[in-house]
């Protein structure tokens, strides 16, 4: 999570487009990309070269383009931001799908993680508390504060107990965590840290699981009182 790569908005558009083309056809060609992005072939080449330098894509001239694992993770993140925004516009603001999609496209590059999380919170909040009123806004603030009580699993100490609320990861890591039984509502207990301080050992579903702090950071949990 810490090895953040930053690329410009237009490059984000490229990698997003590659992601979609790869999803459809397994591999992308520069021409597909130019067509989809409605740009000239020459500007595609330049962008591809930069993405390849950052090890986000596998690309050599005149060959097909595929995403590296890092590129895939990056693209998934961009797509996720896009989807959150779009869904918010459609479901909460009642914007029609096409317009929402276009707006999301422009905003996805600048929306930070916190803003996005709040938008998701808000959409959920609207669902639970559909009626308006004076206390509505403060109600939302309260709702957010309650959500903020969720902590990352990595912040718990040996002996702490909790319940898993969400796994905020994508791709392989998410799948691995979920396969090991880390799904919403699962109670667990932190047993200990390794002698060098990392990884952690937790007990859940009747077995013992070791995971690095890095992975435990992706799991938000509700801490249970007492030991």
């Amino acid at each position: 999570m810490t090895d953040a790569i930053h690329i410009s908005a237009s490059l984000e558009d490229y990698i997003e487009a590659i992601f979609h083309i790869v999803a459809e056809k397994q591999a992308a060609k520069p021409r597909d990309l130019a067509e989809r992005m409605k740009v000239a072939g020459s500007s595609v080449t330049g962008a591809l070269r930069i993405l390849a330098e950052k090890a986000l894509i596998n690309y050599t001239p005149y060959d097909i383009i595929t995403l590296t694992p890092a590129g895939k993770a990056y693209a998934e993140d961009v797509v996720h931001r896009h989807e959150v925004l779009r869904d918010f516009f459609v479901n909460v603001l009642a914007v029609d799908y096409k317009a929402a999609d276009e707006a999301a496209c422009g905003m996805e590059h600048s929306a930070s993680k916190v803003i996005l999380e709040r938008l998701v919170q808000f959409a959920k909040f609207v669902e639970v508390r559909p009626r308006g009123g004076e206390d509505w806004v403060s109600g939302f603030r309260h709702h957010c504060e309650k959500a903020a009580q969720l902590v990352k699993m990595s912040e718990l100490k040996p002996g702490d107990k909790g319940v898993i609320m969400a796994v905020n990861a994508q791709g392989e890591i998410a799948q691995r965590l979920v396969d090991m039984g880390m799904v919403k509502g699962t109670p667990f207990k932190v047993l200990r840290k390794a002698p060098l301080g990392d990884p952690l050992e937790i007990q859940l579903r009747g077995f013992l699981l070791a995971l690095r702090k890095q992975e435990a950071e992706c799991v938000s949990v509700e801490k249970k009182a007492g030991k």
């Binding site: 090890a55 013992l208 699981l209 070791a210 690095r212 992975e215």
Partner: peptide
Amino acid sequence: FKGRSEPFVMELPV
């Protein structure tokens, strides 16, 4: 060999 390394999510068997 850049890129994410294998996550450490491992059962500690009895």
